[in-house]
Design a protein around this nucleic acid. Structure first.
Lengths: 133, 133
DNA sequence: CCGTATCCCAAGTGATACTG
DNA sequence: CAGTATCACTTGGGATACGG
């Protein structure tokens, strides 16, 4: 009960310096900031999926964006792409070991978001409700 | 050693559905995706700071972006803004209890990023190095 | 000291059409 | 099935100048 008024999360400090680029945080945030990344990771976190399966799971995604997202995740070594040379071809995506660790991080994010959704929304309403007395 | 080939992070699945907007993940990701959010949180994670102190700590930030970032964090209830009506005025920012929890989440992100920076960079180089034999 | 107001550009994204 | 190509739009963010 004493920590609330006096924050003590030293872990974060080294990345607030001018040298923050060097700590690699931007690499992660750039990926995370993209619209479909977490949902793709989420879909793959329960097992390998084919392109079409991911597309169907992510309501609203365009082929362009799905492919872009998958390519970037593959480039960063988070996702593995396997092509079965049938006709028509069958392409399967899965998380790498590296990607699996990433999915654990995002899982914490998802959980926190779900738990604090209402707090955030309420806070916004209160904030926006100012302007008169 | 058995988990690497068969991912099992069920926690993520509910947010990959078409109803993903409802889980509040987007609220968190929108904030996180912004360029200066994590660095502001990082700076405040070790204690309250005045506007000018944050500005100096975040090399390269403009007043416009710093103010924008702080306002959005305040609106979401993550940061508290305290004005001391001196002349000239003194404004102090600090993490709320809510924000402190958020900083814990981002701390995990920072740590993971630092540990995997090299893996990501190497993976990119390997990926980009394709095109010939 | 602590902001706000404008302008402007680049990047992320969506829509749509086409292909091996 | 699994993409690629093109275009057009919207938003984030930097530069700069001004104000209480």
């Amino acid at each position: 009960m004493f920590a609330a008024t006096q924050p003590v999360a030293k872990t974060l400090e080294p990345c607030g310096t001018p040298d923050h680029e060097d700590c690699g945080l931007r690499l992660t945030l750039d990926r995370l900031g993209e619209k479909w990344t977490v949902m793709v990771i989420a879909e793959l976190s329960t097992g390998p999926r084919r392109y079409r399966e991911i597309e169907r799971a992510l309501s609203g995604v365009t082929q362009r964006m799905l492919t872009l997202t998958l390519r970037r995740l593959e480039r960063d070594g988070l996702v593995d792409r396997h092509v079965e040379p049938t006709n028509p071809p069958s392409v399967t995506y899965s998380l790498t070991t590296h990607g699996l660790g990433f999915s654990a991080i995002t899982a914490g994010l998802v959980e926190w978001s779900r738990e604090h959704k209402d707090v955030i929304l309420a806070s916004r309403e209160a904030y926006d409700g100012r302007g008169k007395g």
